[in-house]
Design a protein around this nucleic acid. Structure first.
Length: 1046
RNA sequence: CGCCCCAUAGCUUAGUGGUAGAGCAUCUGUCUUACAAACAGAGGGUUGCAAGUUCAAAUCUUGCUGGGGCGACCA
């Protein structure tokens, strides 16, 4: 790829770039996993979206998180597989198809199973393609060659194997039990597919007469129509009010059926009348009681929710119509006592959105305890899997503990048909509750088995029902890799590493996977479960179809780009598992936060453009690494910040802190790199042919290239695009496959960063003063920096050109303050009562200062060094003896100070001598250490080196003029102001700063005067407080004297 | 009824014992040669309320209030 750098547009256009790379990655199979690839395997299976869906914000969020993790791990060199796919969503698809059929005036029974399924597959091809295509637009780094669908041949084989094995082990059974019946989809559903909603209903009170005519009992119900199926009334055996009627019978009104009064401890005597009507076929509790008391179980419902022949006169009526009619009838008969409003919860079908009916029917179940207990063992004994955040472990565990058997049969056609064949010839050609059956992995096998059992003439019919979709999803982590066959993929990538999913799916899916995996593979299917929150709308509401408040990710992608949307979503993640909120203006279809990320992509684009325009067409590789000896202050600073950022980003990503990592990168790129470093090197880039320019180019190229790699997992497209242009790589190289940057600790220099803070603070203070004083933005000014701290002055001097460039200062004066202010402030004596270690450190620092600044000639250097070393050694030896003498430290400082003054006067006063001096140092250093080209060997400790070619102007302070004054640390910043100045404004500004400083002094001295604080707080905390107090006092003092002079 | 989470600037939030920091938004100035999708500057906080522990609490404890979630439920 050739760099056509200067012609790059000044605004980044994601639309072309993003689809270009998505296509390139896929057609070149960049993310195709290879089990033979070196490196520890890292594997994630996608939470399969269902084929009826289209991409929503939750998908975008989830996949952005996964892709960030996966791309990071891939760049770390792990043998990475992210396996994509979809699930078949039995009920959802069936509902849609039946609706279509109904619109055509048909029913599924009319078209028949085969034609129906043909239709379903056709539909799946179209709709399933939609979501997979949309997934592609997110730029996910999945291996499309391994895409799976839960009804693929391979996965279906896994389902058959799992089912037959569980059946043979006695863990799957068929039986007549109470299930949740959804009249809308006309199928049983599992407990999890039922949502309890609180509704305002009524409690109807009825009176059932005793058959012996001795009175009545009063019962209450929220579902009056169920009385048609009542087969008893129960009371608590201890309830004295009713002891005498237990064993008697009642006459059930309307049905005129004689039913017994039974005693059961389940009945709460204190609730209502203490009498409970019992409908064993339509209530789980009543069912249990019915079994205990051998009561008849009368089913009054048809599959579609209408009443059946057992409902007498109400046969054929819808359940809700019947409810009204039953009440009316009872009222007519005089059996209605009262109706009271009653708030209660009603189970609704998740899919059908109608109330489910508890119904007694014959279904297939998984005996769950053995599976759940096995999984609990993994959790309790091996902490496997680990949940991030940890608190979800308890939720997961509690559910496993209280889990009931799982109804897995669905009266639907779309899905995995249950591999059970009934010998219908044994029951008159019908499948009844008692028809004998065989379970087998294929029809042929079933026939073989059946013949053995029932003879040649056996007539077999396969169970028409299908399995719960989650049954197949539960096998997903290993069925997708070839299980039950022992494939290479399975051996390499299973168990998978991390599962990323929402908390709402822990029960549905996570627990089912762990149970199935524990049973079939003897392992947990993933070692970590990362739980993310929901994406909420601009009002903090859950996005849902019913509330119609979804935000279309594709709309935002088209408007701002995939990278921008992804970065927004990931950046918003605070702690793991927390919900995120997406800003959105529905009128304009705009999102402020995505726009901010789009602006960030544009920033990256333009910063890269700037860098590339200044590299003379060379790539980072061609430019090479800078010679460490030639690095300037700003270079060392940005390299330190860069490596610090690498360290931080990796640390965050390693502990799933994707949001924090993203925010850190945003700050580094926009703040450190663009706002400061690029601005700092601009003047150097305008010095053709200079060494300084070359170094700046090298650092720019090095940091930009590495930053692109750092950012790639978060913003894959723009980084890939810029990286190709920057490195002029050919098309077979991909940033996605480069190594993630590694931090070099020796380049991270906290002291240097701190020193740089002073420069940045000074620049800000000057800019602030300019703005406050209405200095024209373009005007070059004069500024005076005063500090009594020689170290501070040294730093300011070293960064002089930076201050001049970025604060537009023409004449910069750095000096010690006037004598009066030197003597007026003295740090508290006790602050110097430092430990021997600290003094030694001080000394070391002084030594290194001198090492940097003292020598005129290389030969002299060595001599001085030797002398100093000896002196230091002697001093160190005696310091231990005399560290109680307070004067030592100030004395040393004084000596150092005096020496520095002399030194500055001698060598640094003029630009000429400084340049010469700097040159000598470099020469000396390269002689001593050789030219270090490898960063690994470098060491920047020591920090400050005066930068060259600074026109220094030493002028006396024009104290008579009006000045704007600010304070940063203990540095006083003044700008002489020409012309008219708003004195009041200046005064109020100073007064405000003064008030703040005085408040600080007040609070700090209060704290320090508290003996308990001084006694009990750690030494360094007290020390920090003292330092802060000294600084605040100094500030206040400067401000006060300025204010006085105004 | 039980369990869990949350509460900090207008919004989104950082800060696990040392005296509150950022981004967005707002206001002011600027088209300064990478970027007006930008740059520079400014204002903005009784850390939900109350007590307690501590020299010191946004941070730990308890209670309360408000918001959200999950689970269970007696007809």
């Amino acid at each position: 790829m050739t760099a056509t750098i200067p012609s790059l547009a000044s605004q980044y256009d994601p639309s072309v770039t993003e689809s270009k790379w998505q296509q390139a990655w896929e057609t070149n199979q960049v993310f195709k996993a290879d089990p033979d690839h070196p490196g520890e395997p890292y594997c994630v299976v996608i939470p399969p979206p269902n084929v009826t869906g289209s991409l929503h914000m939750g998908h975008a969020f989830e996949n952005a998180l996964i892709d960030t993790l996966v791309r990071y791990q891939r760049m770390l060199g792990r043998n990475t597989l992210w396996l994509p796919g979809t699930d078949h969503a039995s009920i959802a698809v069936q509902t849609i198809l039946e609706r279509q059929l109904k619109a055509e005036g048909q029913s599924r029974e009319q078209v028949g199973r085969e034609a129906f399924l043909e239709r379903a597959w056709r539909w799946k091809e179209e709709s399933g393609g939609t979501i997979v295509g949309q997934l592609r637009s997110l730029g996910v780094s999945v291996d499309w060659t391994r895409e799976r669908f839960t009804m693929d041949a391979g996965l279906s084989k896994a389902v058959l194997t799992a089912f037959t094995q569980l059946y043979n082990e006695g863990l799957i059974y068929r039986g007549k039990y109470m299930v949740n019946w959804c009249p809308a989809s006309q199928s049983a559903v599992s407990d999890l597919e039922v949502e309890n909603k609180e509704v305002d209903g009524n409690l109807w009170h009825f009176r059932y007469p005793l058959t012996d005519g001795s009175g009545y009992v009063e019962v209450a119900t929220t579902r009056p129509e169920t009385m048609l199926g009542d087969t008893a009334v129960a009371v608590n055996p201890e309830d004295d009010r009713y002891k005498h009627i237990v064993g008697k019978t009642l006459m059930l009104p309307i049905m005129n059926r004689e039913i017994p009064v039974i005693a059961d401890a389940y009945v709460d005597a204190s609730f209502g009348t203490g009498c409970v009507k019992i409908t064993p076929a339509h209530d789980p509790n009543d069912f249990e009681m019915g079994k205990r008391h051998n009561l008849p179980m009368i089913n009054i419902l048809n599959k579609d929710g209408t009443l059946n022949e057992n409902a007498g006169e109400f046969q054929g009526r819808d359940r809700f119509v019947a409810r009204k009619n039953v009440v009316k009838r009872l009222e007519e008969l005089g059996n209605l006592v009262k109706v009271e409003p009653y708030k209660h919860t009603v189970p609704y079908s998740d899919r059908g959105k109608v109330p489910v009916e508890p119904l007694l029917s014959t279904q297939w179940f998984v005996k769950i305890r053995p599976l759940a207990d096995r999984t609990l063992e993994f959790l309790d004994q091996q902490q496997d899997p680990v949940f991030v955040p940890e608190r979800w472990t308890k939720v997961y565990r509690d559910w496993l503990v209280s889990l009931k058997d799982w109804c897995i049969s669905r009266q639907l056609w779309w899905g995995h048909q249950i591999p059970a064949w009934y010998a219908v010839d044994q029951t008159n050609g019908e499948i009844t509750d008692d028809t004998p059956f065989v379970v087998a992995a294929s029809e042929a096998e079933a026939r073989e088995k059946a013949i053995a059992q029932f003879g040649e003439g056996v007539q077999l019919v396969q169970d028409p029902d299908v399995l719960d979709t989650w049954f197949s999803s539960g096998l997903w982590p290993f069925s997708t890799m070839g299980w039950p066959d022992q494939t290479k993929d399975l051996a390499t990538y299973y168990p998978t590493t991390t599962l990323v999913t929402g908390f709402d799916i822990i029960f549905f899916w996570v627990a089912r996977m762990t149970m199935m995996a524990g049973h079939f593979t003897g392992k947990m299917p993933f070692s970590t479960v990362y739980i993310h929150g929901l994406v909420r709308d601009e009002n903090g509401k859950k996005m849902s179809k019913s509330a119609n408040n979804g935000i279309d990710p594709l709309l935002l992608i088209n408007k701002y780009g995939t990278d921008a949307l992804r970065f927004t979503l990931v950046k918003e993640v605070a702690g793991a598992g927390q919900d995120i909120k997406l800003e959105y203006d529905r009128k304009k279809d705009e999102s402020a936060s995505v726009e901010a990320s789009r602006n960030f992509t544009n920033k990256i684009w333009n910063a890269s453009r700037f860098v590339m325009m200044n590299l003379d067409g060379q790539t980072p590789a061609q430019l090479g690494l800078p010679d460490t000896a030639k690095l300037e202050l700003a270079d060392r600073w940005i390299l330190g910040r860069y490596h610090q950022t690498i360290k931080q980003t990796r640390a965050y990503l390693d502990q799933y802190g994707m949001g924090e990592a993203a925010k850190g990168l945003y700050e580094f790129i926009w703040g450190d790199f663009c706002d400061w470093y690029i601005e700092l090197v601009k003047s150097r880039l305008q010095q053709p042919g200079s060494e300084s320019r070359k170094v700046a180019q090298q650092v720019l190229a090095y940091v930009l290239e590495g930053t692109l790699r750092l950012l790639h997992p978060f913003m894959p497209h723009i980084t890939e695009e810029v990286w190709h242009t920057l490195t002029q790589s050919n098309t077979t190289d991909y940033l996605a496959l480069q190594r993630y940057p590694e931090p070099i600790d020796s380049l991270i220099n906290a002291e240097l960063e701190q020193q740089f803070e002073l420069l940045i603070g000074t620049i800000r203070t000057i800019r602030n003063l300019r703005a406050e004083s209405d200095v024209k933005p373009g005007a070059k000014i004069q500024a005076i920096l005063e500090s009594e701290d020689d170290r501070e002055r040294q730093i300011l001097t070293a960064g002089q050109s930076y201050i001049q460039d970025l604060a537009k200062v023409e004449q910069l004066t750095i000096q010690a303050p006037l004598v009066e202010s030197i003597v007026s402030v003295e740090p508290p004596l006790s602050s110097h009562a430092s430990t021997p270690q600290e003094q030694a450190a001080d000394l070391g620092e002084t030594l290194s200062d001198l090492g940097w600044t003292v020598y005129k000639k290389p030969a002299l250097t060595l001599i001085y060094l030797l002398i100093l070393l000896i002196v230091a050694k002697v001093l160190l030896a005696i310091i231990g003896e005399m560290n109680h003498i307070f004067l030592i430290s100030p004395l040393l400082k004084l000596i150092g100070f005096g020496y520095t003054v002399w030194f500055i006067y001698r060598y640094l006063r003029t630009a000429e001598s400084r340049q010469q001096f700097a040159h000598q140092i470099r020469e000396f250093r390269s002689k001593v250490s050789g030219s270090l080209t490898d960063f690994e060997q470098s060491d920047f400790a020591g920090a400050i080196e005066p930068s060259s070619s600074i026109p220094t102007t030493v002028v006396s302070t024009p104290s008579q003029e009006q000045q704007a004054v600010g304070v940063i640390g203990t540095v006083q910043v003044s700008i002489p102001l020409a012309g008219v100045v708003d004195l009041d404004l200046l005064r109020s500004k100073l007064q405000k700063d003064l008030t703040r400083a005085e408040a600080e002094v007040q609070s700090l001295s209060q704290r320090l005067s508290n003996p308990k604080f001084v006694d009990k707080a750690p030494v360094d905390v007290v020390q920090n407080a003292r330092t802060a107090l000294a600084e605040a006092e100094k500030q206040a003092e400067i401000l006060k004297s300025r204010l006085d002079r105004l």
